[in-house]
Design a protein around this nucleic acid. Structure first.
Length: 341
DNA sequence: CACGCGATGCTTAATGCCGC
DNA sequence: GCGGCATTAAGCATCGCGTG
């Protein structure tokens, strides 16, 4: 333990923790890197821990806001121990790595490096890439600390992206206060992503009957008939013509079943309807039944939208991996594009 | 009660698509 | 290429909920 840690603990009236910090060899560098898990380990008493967390957070924020001053004075060494932490604290927010993973990201990186500025179009793209990464790592509702960390990491990496708000990153993320919601490019993008996700899910959950109130194959069949057909389909792969006919008749039932109580995993779906994958054309037949007006477009645009669907499925935990190359013949997970393959 | 935070809805601007 | 239309995103305001 060094002088910095002693001073801080005394300052924060948490000197009873001195022994623990000394025992755990917490020095200035590791002090600044302490995360929630480490704090929990070091400070088992909740009251003390909360006080510590509060002061620790303030210290980090103060360090960041003074960073620019420090940089302008070329006092790099001072900066190293106080402001680099914002990036080190959240190693997943290595901005260059995050952007370097895509062609557009690399283009933005070179623009920022060369011109020290970006256009509004590039800024939007940058926000999309960062938020996509954020959602991938932390879900749709990342805590505000995480969003602050991302914004801080961004302006640390590219000081030209600083704004004239007090924090220098307020344009990218500003936590909510005084009855005002959080804002900033990152927050706004997150909000839009959430809005779109929910609008995709909600109508299906709320109005499954209304959607297909028209006469459709299985609206003409009794529930008993449907159950019988589903049971038959579980046990029989042949004759193919009969499988296709029964799959067609049960398409609406299947769609409702998949969507009821949230949604099903792919393995659940395939357990209930194994013919979806082992009989080519069944999924596209379902889609044709459910959305006849869009089936053609779906087929034509499949290569472009497959990747989006897979990424969404991965994020929702429906599948574990996303193949690099989604070809029209792909049917490893659900057989969705089997019309093509 | 004040505050932080997220949800929602609205307006406006930007962008994409399509037919000519 | 251009104009009209539809869709999407950004920005803002308001509301509700949980917490201290």
């Amino acid at each position: 333990m060094d002088e910095f840690v002693k001073t801080k603990l005394n300052e924060w009236q948490l000197d009873t923790l001195l022994d623990t910090f000394k025992e755990q060899e917490v020095d200035e560098e590791s002090f600044l890197l302490l995360d929630d898990a480490a704090m929990q380990h070091l400070i088992p008493k909740i009251g003390q821990r909360l006080k510590f967390q509060k002061h620790h957070k303030e210290l980090l924020q103060a360090a960041c806001s003074t960073k620019d001053q420090c940089l302008s004075e070329k006092n790099v060494e001072t900066v190293a121990s106080t402001t680099l932490l914002t990036v080190v604290l959240h190693p997943e927010f290595a901005i260059r790595q995050m952007l370097g993973g895509s062609l557009e990201g690399r283009s933005i990186l070179s623009t920022l490096d060369e011109k020290q500025s970006i256009t509004s179009k590039e800024r939007k793209l940058l926000v999309r890439l960062l938020v996509s990464h954020l959602i991938e790592k932390h879900g749709e509702m990342p805590p505000s600390d995480t969003k602050i960390a991302l914004a801080m990491a961004l302006i640390y990496e590219f000081p030209c992206l600083k704004d004239d708000t007090g924090s220098s990153y307020g344009a990218w993320y500003t936590p909510g206060r005084k009855h005002r919601p959080a804002t900033g490019f990152l927050e706004e993008r997150l909000r839009n992503v959430r809005k779109r996700m929910r609008s995709l899910i909600r109508p299906r959950q709320q109005e499954p009957q209304e959607d297909h109130a028209v006469l459709t194959p299985d609206s003409l069949s009794s529930p008993q008939n449907i159950r019988e057909m589903v049971a038959w389909l579980k046990a029989n792969k042949y004759p193919v013509s009969e499988v296709e006919a029964k799959m067609k008749e049960t398409s609406i039932h299947r769609s409702k079943w998949i969507r009821c109580n949230g949604s099903k995993t792919i393995s659940e779906i395939l357990r209930e309807f194994p013919r979806l994958t082992d009989n080519p054309g069944m999924i596209s037949q379902d889609f044709q039944q459910l959305h006849p007006e869009a089936a053609g477009q779906m087929f034509e645009k499949w290569p472009a939208i497959a990747d989006k669907i897979l990424k969404y499925a991965q994020r929702e935990g429906k599948i574990n991996v996303v193949p690099d190359d989604v070809t029209p013949g792909w049917n490893q997970y659900s057989g969705v594009p089997d019309k093509c393959g």
